[in-house]
């Protein structure tokens, strides 16, 4: 009897996970994560606001391209000043590239001048898998209703070359600009590029 109950519970759990997986134009799956200071952030708390999810791994050259050029920090500053919530999420497992202790992270954030709302630690990779995050960077935009409206690459030049940032068309800012200007925005997906997320 115990077994049956356990099986049913496991089954329901997995079914829920399947239902929850991120999909365009659907409710973005909720999650709760902590930043390196131990502060808890819950996605559903930001209902009514645009939310950007940025998968991050400071060891990855594709991420470095956007931080060394100052591109990512500029975007973070510009949009958070306009009321957008910007959550950088690191799904690197402990011991893998991109995993840092809280102390190390505090230093990196300072050194890099990170302007995101929060840098969240997802060492179990659960949230990453929920959103099917494949690369770093991998960008998601959630509208005030809580629906996913964009998933994919940060821009259209697949490279690690810092120079390319100037000429690339930035998908995240074009979606956000339209949203903030009150235009109708059709949901979109592009192919993300970058390092693989260093899951467990």
């Amino acid at each position: 009897m115990k077994h049956i109950i356990l099986n049913v519970v496991v089954f329901i759990f997995f079914s829920l996970m399947l239902i929850q997986a991120a999909e365009l134009d659907k409710r973005a799956p909720d999650f709760t994560l902590q930043d390196y200071n131990g502060k808890t952030y819950k996605l559903s708390d930001f209902k009514g606001k645009y939310v950007v999810l940025e998968w991050i791994n400071f060891g990855c050259p594709f991420v470095q391209k956007h931080y060394n050029s100052g591109n990512m920090q500029t975007l973070q500053k510009k949009y958070t000043e306009n009321g957008v919530i910007w959550l950088s999420i690191c799904s690197s497992a402990e011991g893998k590239q991109g995993y840092y202790t809280a102390k190390e992270l505090a230093n990196i954030a300072k050194e890099q001048g990170v302007n995101s709302t929060a840098y969240l630690i997802d060492e179990s990779g659960e949230v990453g898998k929920l959103y099917d995050a494949k690369t770093t960077p991998h960008m998601y935009i959630i509208n005030p209703k809580g629906n996913l409206i964009y998933a994919g690459a940060i821009d259209d030049v697949r490279s690690t070359n810092v120079e390319d940032v100037k000429t690339a068309k930035n998908y995240v800012s074009s979606v956000l600009n339209d949203c903030l200007a009150g235009k109708m925005v059709e949901s979109a997906a592009t192919t993300p590029y970058g390092c693989s997320v260093k899951y467990k």
Partner: peptide, 12 residues
């Protein structure tokens, strides 16, 4: 030639 070489980590 430009490439991305990866093992556990990736290096351009």
């Amino acid at each position: 030639i430009s490439w991305l070489e990866c093992e556990a980590v990736c290096i351009p």
